[in-house]
Nucleic acid binder design. Sequence first.
DNA 1: GAGTTTGAAACT
DNA 2: CAGTTTCAAACTC
Length: 778
Amino acid sequence: MDTPERAKIAGTPLSKFEDSPIYNFINNLSPIQPVKSIDSVPIAHTHQPLNFASLSSIFSSPHANPPRESRHPFTDYFKQENFSDNVGESSLCSEVSDAGRPSGFTSSSQENCTMMCSLNEATVDPPDECSALPSTFPQSTQYYSGSPDHNVKPCLGIKMDLKLDVGHTPVEFHFVQNSAERRKVLFAMENGVQENLPLELDKDKGVGCDWESLIPDDGQSLLIFDSSTESEAHKGVDEKAVDNDGHSIVSLLSNCTENADHLQKTKPDISHDPFVHNVNQDPPQNCREVFEKEHETDNATKMLSDTCHDQVDSRQQRGMRRRCLIFEVASVSKRNMYSDSKLNPLTSLSFKGKSVCDTKNLKPKIRESLYALPGIGLHLNALATTSKDRMVNKETLASEKQIISIPCSVGSLTSTTAGRNSLSKSSSAVEKDLCPSGSEVDLQIVSDDAPKDVTPNICEELSQGSPKKKRRKSGNGGESEGCKRCNCKKSKCLKLYCECFAAGVYCSEPCSCQGCFNKPIHEETVLATRRQIESRNPLAFAPKVIRTSEFGLEMGDDDKKTPASARHKRGCNCKKSNCLKKYCECYQGGVGCSIGCRCEGCKNLFGRKDDFLPRFEELEQAEKEADASCEKDNESLGDDQQNNSIQIDEHHSSGHILPITPYQSCRLSVELPFSSIASSTSTKLSIGRSPAVYGSHMLRKCEMVLPPPKLENNVSTVVEDDTPAILRPTAAPTTTGIRIASPNQKRVSPPHGGAVKLFRFIDRHLMCGGHCESECGQ
DNA sequence: GAGTTTGAAACT
DNA sequence: CAGTTTCAAACTC
């Protein structure tokens, strides 16, 4: 269809259409787009806020999460809010969206915004930029805009910013790649994990899209991941497209659609899902075509088919996730609620009529919440767990395309199985995948190879029904933010004994706790307690399982064995369970025991401590070699790689400039999944074009992503959101950090010597940006 | 569903 | 830092 026709169909005068952003976008697709955004305020802004320290003061539940789960709650909340009352959203987004914009668009774009905001908000600490912002209404406003500074900018600018902010990875990609690649990426982003994209893209996803990577965030990374994940899961591919890189497209479309009245006519009640339909179906054809261009891959059909499932499932997932990150969310939601008094908390937070959290308890303490929740957003553990879980989600989604060894604890084991989940299973798989926590995967996949016990992550929330089942069946999964539910009787849910509390989420309906103080109404108490605990142990809320990267060090041939990079930060101390039961945190986390463990008679199916030691020594040896080779590589990188490196550097630099550190921490957890995937497949993924690039992506991911701990597993998403300030590398964003520090010593007992070595090793590899991986053969 | 086991968290 | 107690999840019946 030629342009005139399309325009006509769209209901937009051709001349007008030509002036429209989308038109320009199409025509300018090939040229390099303004890179400004990369370094521009948005990112910086976004990232800075995501200070883990502040968070820790948090990651994807996790509930995302992470995972834990991070932004979902917000997103959903806002989505609903939007539906219920578009007025609120319109405020700041007005420039971008406009009255004419279809609700669907609005919501989606907002969702993106939400991600950003959530991140920002995650950072509650005073030092953060966010803190500087007005605590109440203004923030919410910003929230809508996507990032504090964005709202002010013109539409196009905003769009770009949004893109950058939200879809970090995607955006950057766009900038650095040629038009063809850009499209690919864009498309890939749109499609999210589901598509069979080239390895490169997958990697990116792994890095950036993961989300799982929730994560993240954990937690924060989780947020971003989640966003992607969520969008993927919830919205389905198409919708996702809108969310991610789709930003630009969406934005453009929105503009385009502005001219087309019919879009506006979209049903008010449409949620995202519906929106997707609108985008795909309703929009003027010209717009649509553009959109389709991106989708012209063979995946389109699949995506569409999947979309239906996703739509249904997505809702469920949302509901489940809402509860996550509630600490963080609570404050945010409150803000918004207050900003818009019309909204009924219950309504806004409820999912399918169910209150995600004790919204009834929510009272306007906006201020307190804002400052009070320093970090509270994604809680770390959750994120950690979540992150992996989330990652799993993403991976799961991705799995459709390729076999992924899921990093998530259990998931990893089942990776292949997951891979098997093909389209035929997609519907069911999706459902499970949608489960916020990593459980999803576990559910079905794990069962095969993994020990029976391993099913930790069963997302019960899907069947939110019976409170009786509240009692989490899921082990790991339990950890998934979304699925957390406690049964505390004496701790008042204010100690780490309480999984909800430990995960950084409020207790909710499904919990069977007694005398619970872990509720929004007791926010101050919760925060105070949290701080206290953190003061004692800064890592108390950090993810327990650290998943590092891609240099896939396999513990052994056994599929169940996890990469050396993925280990419990603190290690277990099992004496009677032989690390074969969920009493063992390593086992529960789906990771093998390592040097850091003090377990006796370890028989961890995911990797025994004994097995780890020898291997570890080898790794150590390799490490030295790796260092050398890395240096060489750095010097001898080809032009190609150099270019990539340069770009990477830019990102890094930007990251450096910005307080990215927090993200870094996320990286581990989040990225790990990917890495694990790589390793599991035994392909040394020389990632894409160059390891360096890959590394950069990873970094970026961290930077951008954060929110998760995707957390988790799925999250591997998110991950280590909470990295305490201490751990955060001040200088070298990329590598340092994390891991090493993160090791969870919940009790902050420093990692054992062996553990330290391990982490250091991992860290070094990360520093090589994955380059070593290929070179060093690790 | 009640009781037991287990190991992390918390305390000393 | 080690030992002990408390706690709640995981597990068993």
